[in-house]
């Protein structure tokens, strides 16, 4: 029986008076590959900034691993502590450009563990090996390709053996082969590290290949208009908007 890891209730997000989304509810279970999908400009990435504590919602609650993250008296210190159980892969990789790949991956380990430098060095090598970047320890982000940056960003996200990893459009800017390889890597990580995955994307091949559960955010109504396994939703779309999205407007 899977347990809920992330529970969102009645979330409303706005920039000033401009409401981006309202009354968003969903639950991410442990070991899910949960896809947040929707067209451009529907607020997927904004939702991710709320889920990861960068932006406060106007209303609603988020429960993270059974503990309050937004609402119910949660403080910034609570969020910081909970985010140590999470890893994030940003759209651009967001590697710190003044550091080598090894220093990027080592940073969370140096910050939040009392491992010795030798242990950290071994762990950094392991994480880079896991994402296929063994030997690239001393490269700077500017010296590697976009796909490699994403892999290095993933290695950094995995540094603290997170229980959940958030991905912001991981396939953006990648060729189809690199995109598929990244999908395979995400599945391997989920299987082997027993990690829950939350992914913001609108890449249909990725959605159908790895998604186990999903929500569809609608830009017009500014809320969730469909939820479920993406392949099931493709077979029985609950509304025309989602059908249009999942079939690239063919039906």
């Amino acid at each position: 029986m899977t347990k809920p890891f992330l529970e969102i209730k009645g979330l409303t997000v706005a920039y000033g008076e401009n409401v981006i989304m309202h009354d968003v509810d969903f639950t991410v279970n442990e070991r899910d590959v949960f896809i947040i999908m929707g067209g451009s400009g529907c607020g997927k990435s904004t939702l991710l900034t709320v889920l990861t504590g960068l932006k406060a919602p106007e209303k609603g609650t988020e429960t993270f691993a059974g503990k309050p993250f937004w609402g119910n008296g949660a403080t910034k210190a609570d969020r910081d502590a909970l985010m140590r159980k999470a890893g994030i892969l940003y759209q651009s990789g967001a590697l710190w450009s003044s550091m080598t790949l090894a220093e990027n991956v080592a940073m969370p380990l140096e910050q939040y563990t009392d491992f010795t430098p030798a242990e950290i060095k071994d762990l950094v090598a392991l994480k880079l090996d896991l994402v296929g970047l063994g030997g690239f320890q001393n490269y700077y982000p500017a010296e590697i390709s976009g796909g490699m940056k994403k892999r290095a960003g993933l290695a950094r996200a995995l540094a603290l053996d997170p229980q959940i990893v958030f991905f912001d459009e991981p396939s953006a800017g990648l060729d189809p082969i690199s995109s598929k390889n990244l999908d395979d890597l995400i599945l391997q990580i989920r299987e082997n590290l027993r990690t829950t995955i939350v992914m913001v994307t609108h890449e249909l091949p990725s959605i159908f290949a790895i998604g186990t559960n999903s929500i569809y955010l609608d830009a017009r109504t500014k809320t969730v208009i469909a939820r479920g396994n993406p392949n099931e939703l493709l077979k029985n779309p609950p509304n025309e908007t989602l059908e249009h999205f999942l079939t690239r407007g063919k039906k």
Partner: peptide
Amino acid sequence: GSMRVNEEVDALETMGV
């Protein structure tokens, strides 16, 4: 500013740094 654009500042903040 470039670090803000490239989400490097976000990466620090979400790590609690």
